[in-house]
C-alpha cells in the first residue's frame, strides 16, 4: 500500500515540477535580450527588410504577448505536440530523439566509467586508509573536483589530439563519410575522449563518498566482529564492506543524473559532439523557444527519473525496508 502511495506522490511531484520548470524557463526566455528573428537571420540582417522581419515574427507568433504565447504552447503540449524547432525546422520531439541518441551513449559510458572507477578508488582508499595509496587517491579526487569539466576537456584535447594525435578532435562520426559507411567502431572512437572527460568529475564525487561511507562501515561493530573471526583485506571488503556501501553508492550514482547532464552541455560544446547538450546551447543562444522548452522538460524528466530510481532502489533492495513492507501488507 505504501508503495502505490509513494508512486502517486512521485507523479504529483513530477507534474508540479514540470509545470514550475516550464513557467520559469518561459519567463527567463521572454526577458532574454536575444531576438529570435535576428538570431535566425544572422548575417543577412542588412538585406532583410523591416516588413519581412515582421512577417517572420508573425509566422512564429512572436507578435503576441508572452502570456498568450505560453498558453498557446501549453495547450499544444498537453495534446502531445511539442512544436517545431525554429533552427532545425523539424518537430522538437524528432530533434530531441535524434540528439539524445548520441548523448545517451556518451552519458551511459561516462556514467558507468565514473561509477565503477569511483567505487573502486573509494574502496581502495578506505581499505588502505592513511597509506600513500589513500593520499594519492584523495589528492587526485580533490584536484579533479576543483577542476572545471570543460577545462579538463580542453587539456585532454591538447594532449591527445594535438601532441599525441591518437583521438579525433571532435564530432561523433568521421567527417566526409556518408552515414551508411559509419561503423560503430567509428562512433566509439569519437566518443572516448568526451566520455572520459565527462566521467572525470563524477569519479571524484563517488570516490570520496564511497571512501567516507566505507570508513564508517570499517569502524562499525560488525566489521570489528568480522575481524575477530579472522576476516581481513579483500575478503572482509567483499563480505561486509561492499555489501554495506553498495546501496548508498548506487543511489548516489542515480542521483547524479543532473550533474551528468549539466556536464554534457559543456563537454559536447568543447568536443563539438552533436548531442542534446550542444542542442541546448544552440537553442538558447539562438532563441529557439520550442526546442529549448522541449529540452528543458526532457532533461527535467531525465533527472527526475534518476532520483526516483535512487529512491526505489532503497525500497526494493535494502532488506530492512523491503521486509518492512512485506510485514505491513
Amino acid at each position: 500500500m505504501r508503495a502505490t502511495r509513494m508512486l502517486m506522490f512521485q507523479l504529483i511531484r513530477l507534474v508540479l515540477l514540470l509545470a514550475a520548470v516550464s513557467i520559469i524557463t518561459f519567463a527567463l526566455i521572454s526577458v532574454s535580450p536575444i531576438d529570435p528573428v535576428q538570431a535566425y537571420i544572422g548575417a543577412d540582417m542588412l538585406r532583410v527588410g523591416e516588413e519581412q522581419r515582421a512577417a517572420i515574427a508573425a509566422y512564429w507568433g512572436l507578435d503576441q504577448p508572452p502570456i498568450e504565447r505560453f498558453l498557446h504552447w501549453l495547450k499544444a503540449i498537453v495534446q502531445g505536440d511539442m512544436g517545431t524547432s525554429m533552427i532545425y525546422r523539424e518537430p522538437v520531439l524528432e530533434v530531441i530523439k535524434d540528439r539524445f541518441a548520441h548523448s545517451f551513449v556518451l552519458l551511459l559510458a561516462a556514467w558507468l566509467l565514473s561509477g565503477v572507477i569511483g567505487f573502486a578508488a573509494g574502496s581502495l582508499a578506505a581499505m588502505k586508509q592513511g597509506t600513500w595509496i589513500d593520499r594519492v587517491i584523495q589528492w587526485y579526487c580533490y584536484a579533479l573536483s576543483s577542476t572545471p569539466a570543460f577545462w579538463a576537456g580542453l587539456l585532454l584535447l591538447i594532449v591527445f589530439t594535438v601532441w599525441l594525435p591518437i583521438f579525433p578532435v571532435g564530432l561523433a562520426v568521421p567527417a566526409g563519410v556518408s552515414a551508411e559507411q559509419v561503423t560503430w567502431l567509428d562512433r566509439l572512437y569519437h566518443m572516448v575522449l568526451p566520455a572520459i572527460t565527462l566521467s572525470l568529475v563524477g569519479i571524484s564525487n563517488i570516490a570520496l563518498h564511497t571512501r567516507e561511507k566505507l570508513l564508517e562501515v570499517l569502524g562499525s561493530d560488525y566489521v570489528r566482529f568480522a575481524r575477530a573471526r579472522g576476516e581481513q583485506g579483500f575478503l572482509l571488503w567483499r563480505r561486509h564492506g561492499a555489501r554495506n556501501i553498495m546501496l548508498p553508492a548506487i543511489t548516489l550514482q542515480f542521483a547524479s543524473f543532473s550533474e551528468l547532464f549539466g556536464g554534457a552541455v559543456l563537454i559536447e560544446q568543447v568536443f563539438s559532439y552533436p548531442g542534446l547538450g550542444q542542442a541546448t546551447v544552440e537553442a538558447s543562444t539562438r532563441g529557439d523557444v520550442p526546442l529549448l522548452m522541449g529540452i528543458v522538460l526532457f532533461s527535467t524528466l531525465f533527472v527526475f527519473v534518476g532520483n526516483a530510481i535512487a529512491e526505489w532502489i532503497y525500497r526494493l533492495v535494502d532488506p530492512r525496508i523491503k521486509e518492512g513492507y512485506r510485514h505491513e501488507t
Partner: peptide, 19 residues
C-alpha cells in the same frame, strides 16, 4: 582469530545488518 580464538560479542550490533 576465528579459527583458534573466537569472540562472542555483546549485541546484535555486531552482526552485518545486510546479511
Amino acid at each position: 582469530r576465528g579459527s583458534k580464538i573466537a569472540l562472542i560479542p555483546q549485541s546484535v550490533q555486531y552482526l552485518d545488518p545486510l546479511m
